Amino acid sequence: MSDDLASRLREKGLRLTPQRELILRAVEELRHATPDEVLVHVRAQASSVNASTVYRTLEVLEELGLVRHTHLSDRAPTYHSTLEHEHVHVVCRRCHSVRSYDPDLVAPLVAALGEDGFSVDVGHLAVFGTCADCAASSSRSPGIRETGRRGQPT
């Protein structure tokens, strides 16, 4: 990836720095990571890298088409490498696990929206819900009982 990164940077009048290379490698290794997670990963190898370098580099890498971001929470965006196949993100609201699905899963939705003139950015698509493990664990644990008007179990 270094050669591709170097050539894309040169095309934009930028140079390949060790920090840029480390940050891209971190995104590739972590698969889905926020800038803060990338920073922690990079600092394990180069403690001098700061948060602003990570944020700026992620922006540059996205402009170059080497990484993409999506919003998998209400916090910072999550980045992933474009080397991975395009995918739809499915996020569990309870355990925060992220799973990737083939875009064919949402093909009927994409087609229907396309017929209406809307072009879907599938790689940015995130669907939120409850994973099977969390659903199973909540059905096994005793639930909260409904209460009547005076707080007594019904």
Rank of each mutant, 00 (worst) to 15 (best):
T53I: 14
A33C: 10
V27Y: 03
V49I: 03
P77R: 01
E28W: 00
D104S: 10
S2H: 11
R93M: 10
E62A: 03
E63S: 15
R31W: 02
R15S: 10
V91M: 01
L64D: 00
T78K: 05
S52P: 05
R150C: 11
V91E: 04
L113H: 06
T57W: 01
H32F: 15
S48D: 07
G114I: 06
E21Q: 15
E86K: 07
L83P: 01
R93L: 10
Y101T: 09
R43Q: 15
E11Q: 14
S52L: 04
G13S: 03
G114Q: 09
L64F: 00
S137T: 15
F118Q: 01
R93I: 10
G114L: 01
R75V: 11
D4V: 12
K12P: 15
G13Q: 03
A46Q: 14
C92Y: 05
R99C: 07
F118D: 03
L30T: 02
A76H: 08
E11D: 14
L9T: 03
C131Q: 05
D4R: 13
A26E: 06
R10G: 03
E29V: 14
A6F: 00
T34Y: 08
R68V: 12
V40Q: 13
D102G: 00
I23M: 08
L105G: 01
T34M: 10
E146Y: 11
T147D: 09
P142W: 04
E11I: 15
E115L: 12
R94Y: 11
R93E: 12
S137P: 12
R149G: 12
I23A: 05
G117A: 10
V42L: 08
P108E: 00
S73R: 01
L61C: 07
E29M: 10
C131V: 08
A126Y: 03
V42F: 04
T34G: 12
V60W: 01
S141K: 15
S7M: 12
R8E: 03
H69R: 15
G151H: 00
D116A: 06
S73F: 00
L16C: 11
E28A: 05
V60N: 07
L30N: 06
R25P: 00
R68Q: 14
